[in-house]
């Protein structure tokens, strides 16, 4: 076991894993995390605590993760390269593990242009690939990036990474996944899957390369509440693929929220049947209360004992 996190145990036991997002608030109220943690407690194998997603300032992912742990929810701490250099990242990794974190998701981070401080300087001292390799080096080689030894209490983390099967160049996306595995990724969470055909084509290439046997792949899924959300993602978020028939379906829905849930449930069934998929990652984008409802209706509860 790399970190013996619940997520690692579930995946290595061959169970279909479930993670879901828990977004920290834009204030310092711990009750927000505690309330959202209740939706996830016992229902997921890991709660992704986002790190200032879309470059909007929020409570620190590590602080929010510590609160989630106190509520009994195991976090997947997100760590972006946008805001910290290699010194701060390694320091925060030590701190996160000291607070009980066992999973870390490595991302480059949304560009600050999309957030509420577009005039900020970004860091990107290391990129997501280098971050993965750095965490692996700290864990497996017991060394900082500099080569200095970590004499004891090296950070034992189950290392996650992301990949977007819908970004370009399509054929390189599989090569890049292989590269993330070589860098040290133990599990992958994908960008939101709405275009199941393109996702399946990507997974076929992943399976052809045998990559699904080297890393656990969790398909990212987002339940939407309105057609507006789909329009927004289609038009404003680069690297998203939203089929037109999905937009039509949401447009003509009498109860858009229920339709969004149904679409998500259908998508869960579809990705479950795609070879090489080891689980799902739900990203309800501020609608955390729907997570237990979806998981219940998808027969993914109760979560397995591990």
């Amino acid at each position: 076991m790399k970190s013996a996190s619940r997520l690692e145990k579930v995946l290595t036991a061959g169970e279909f894993a479930v993670t879901a997002e828990l977004g920290p608030p834009q204030n310092s109220n711990p009750e927000v995390i505690k309330k959202k943690a209740q939706y996830l407690l016992g229902n997921v194998d890991g709660a992704n605590i986002t790190d200032n997603q879309t470059a909007v300032v929020r409570m620190s992912s590590i602080a929010a993760a510590a609160i989630a742990i106190s509520c009994g929810v195991e976090p997947v701490v997100q760590m972006v390269c946008r805001d910290r250099n290699r010194i701060a990242i390694q320091s925060d990794i030590l701190g996160a593990v000291a607070l009980g974190a066992k999973n870390l998701l490595c991302l480059s981070g949304d560009h600050q242009k999309f957030g509420n401080h577009p005039e900020a300087m970004n860091v990107f001292d290391v990129d997501s690939m280098q971050l993965i390799a750095m965490v692996k080096k700290m864990r497996d080689d017991k060394q900082f990036l500099s080569g200095d030894p970590i004499k004891e209490y090296e950070p034992k983390l189950f290392i996650g990474a992301v990949e977007n099967p819908f970004a370009d160049p399509f054929e390189f996306r599989v090569m890049r996944l292989a590269k993330k595995i070589r860098a040290g990724a133990d599990f992958i969470q994908t960008q939101c899957v709405f275009d199941i055909d393109k996702f399946s084509r990507w997974m076929e290439l992943v399976v052809k390369e045998g990559l699904h046997k080297q890393v656990y792949i969790l398909a990212g899924l987002t339940p939407v509440r309105s057609v507006r959300a789909l329009h927004y993602m289609k038009n404003e978020v680069a690297g998203m693929s939203i089929p037109d028939e999905l937009i039509k379906r949401m447009e003509s829905a009498q109860e858009p929220k229920e339709e969004g849930v149904k679409i998500c449930l259908e998508m869960i069934e579809k990705v479950k049947n795609v070879e090489g998929v080891s689980g799902i990652h739900l990203m309800p984008i501020g609608w955390e209360s729907i997570t237990p409802v979806i998981l219940e209706r998808a027969n993914l509860l109760p979560r397995p004992e591990v």
């Binding site: 560009h111 970004n122 990129d127 280098q130 992301v162 970004a167 160049p169 680069a238 690297g239």
Partner: peptide, 29 residues
Amino acid sequence: CAKKLFNGPCGGSSDGKCEVDKDIECVWQ
């Protein structure tokens, strides 16, 4: 590259363009 990536392209590369601005070519493409 808007993120100075050494192992790009990031997930925001779309149709050869950078997610930061559609007038900027994705250098990783």
